[in-house]
Amino acid sequence: MSQDPPQDKTVTAALVVIGEEILSGRTQDTNTPYIAAYLSNVGINLREVRVVADLEPEIAETVNALRRRYTYVLTTGGIGPTHDDVTTDAIGMAFGVPVAVNDEAVAAMRLQYLPEDLTPARLRMARIPEGAALIHNAVSRAPGYMIENVIVMAGIPGVMQVMLDEVMPRLAKGRPVQSRSVLVRAPESEVASPLAALQETYADVQMGSYPFFEHGRYGAYLVLRSPDEARLDEALEALWRVIAEHGFTASAADDA
């Protein structure tokens, strides 16, 4: 009988976005905000995002640095059929394992392609590092894979999202992070000192200030985040007291 992965108080992750098209600005990266929100909702704390070029040594070096630091490393991009899709070879380099066409991956791709359509270029997408477990996807059938704590996914958003759904049950998770937002109609410089003092009191609640300017007035969104909902609400009550003490005009962000 299978069991769910254990829940841990702090589960961390890093994301490696791979591709010259991201670095050149030709393609807008929509995967990062999607993955960040997704991981937050399941209790995995995304701590770092790096964007690297399609260069095997750089990818391997980045993955090796991050996989020793975080619970999981997720990568997007570079596992397609073209010559510059080098992520799989870089992962093999990072782990010091060979890369070869995987029979299970080929069988999955046969659900999408006729035998004569499985060209050498398409079979590049069936090359998997030794020891990796496949991450199937129902969109294009070409799989991603997970090797130790590294999760390798496609860069195409629709395919990446399917892979993320498929791999998620295998991962350990912490408590989902909750958030509360308050809009303060005062310059951020005036809010900064009271907020810093409150942060010292509630060191376990993350507090952020995000300034804006609209209709000729300055303001700031104050965002509190914590996996402990009771502690979060306590900090929010304290924030409202601080706002009242300083005479700031404010409202819950959802009501603004």
Rank of each mutant, 00 (worst) to 15 (best):
residue 3 Q to D: 09
residue 4 D to S: 12
residue 6 P to A: 12
residue 6 P to E: 09
residue 10 T to V: 10
residue 11 V to D: 01
residue 13 A to I: 02
residue 20 E to Q: 13
residue 23 L to W: 02
residue 28 Q to L: 07
residue 28 Q to W: 04
residue 29 D to E: 05
residue 29 D to R: 06
residue 30 T to C: 07
residue 31 N to A: 09
residue 32 T to F: 01
residue 37 A to S: 13
residue 39 L to G: 09
residue 44 I to M: 00
residue 47 R to S: 11
residue 48 E to D: 08
residue 48 E to W: 02
residue 51 V to T: 12
residue 54 D to H: 10
residue 55 L to Y: 11
residue 57 P to K: 05
residue 57 P to V: 08
residue 57 P to S: 09
residue 61 E to Y: 05
residue 61 E to V: 07
residue 62 T to I: 08
residue 65 A to F: 03
residue 67 R to F: 02
residue 72 Y to I: 01
residue 73 V to D: 01
residue 73 V to I: 04
residue 73 V to F: 01
residue 77 G to P: 05
residue 78 G to S: 08
residue 79 I to A: 02
residue 82 T to W: 03
residue 83 H to A: 09
residue 84 D to Q: 13
residue 85 D to R: 04
residue 91 I to G: 02
residue 92 G to F: 00
residue 93 M to F: 03
residue 98 P to K: 14
residue 99 V to F: 01
residue 101 V to C: 14
residue 101 V to S: 14
residue 105 A to L: 13
residue 108 A to Q: 10
residue 110 R to M: 15
residue 112 Q to R: 14
residue 116 E to V: 10
residue 120 P to D: 04
residue 121 A to L: 13
residue 122 R to P: 09
residue 122 R to C: 06
residue 128 I to N: 11
residue 129 P to K: 06
residue 129 P to S: 08
residue 132 A to D: 13
residue 133 A to M: 06
residue 134 L to P: 11
residue 141 R to S: 09
residue 149 N to I: 03
residue 149 N to Q: 03
residue 150 V to Y: 01
residue 153 M to C: 08
residue 154 A to T: 03
residue 154 A to W: 00
residue 158 G to K: 08
residue 158 G to S: 10
residue 159 V to A: 07
residue 160 M to P: 12
residue 164 L to R: 01
residue 165 D to F: 02
residue 166 E to A: 12
residue 168 M to F: 02
residue 169 P to C: 09
residue 169 P to N: 06
residue 174 G to L: 00
residue 176 P to V: 00
residue 179 S to Y: 04
residue 179 S to C: 11
residue 181 S to A: 15
residue 182 V to S: 03
residue 184 V to F: 01
residue 188 E to R: 05
residue 189 S to P: 10
residue 190 E to R: 09
residue 196 A to I: 11
residue 198 L to M: 08
residue 199 Q to V: 11
residue 199 Q to Y: 04
residue 200 E to G: 09
residue 202 Y to M: 06
residue 202 Y to C: 15
residue 207 M to L: 13
residue 208 G to M: 03
residue 212 F to D: 11
residue 213 F to M: 07
residue 218 Y to P: 03
residue 221 Y to D: 14
residue 224 L to V: 04
residue 225 R to S: 12
residue 225 R to M: 14
residue 229 E to Y: 00
residue 231 R to F: 00
residue 233 D to Q: 13
residue 235 A to R: 05
residue 238 A to P: 14
residue 243 I to N: 05
residue 243 I to T: 04
residue 243 I to Q: 03
residue 245 E to H: 14
residue 246 H to D: 07
residue 247 G to E: 06
residue 250 A to P: 07
residue 250 A to H: 04
residue 255 D to E: 07
residue 256 A to N: 09
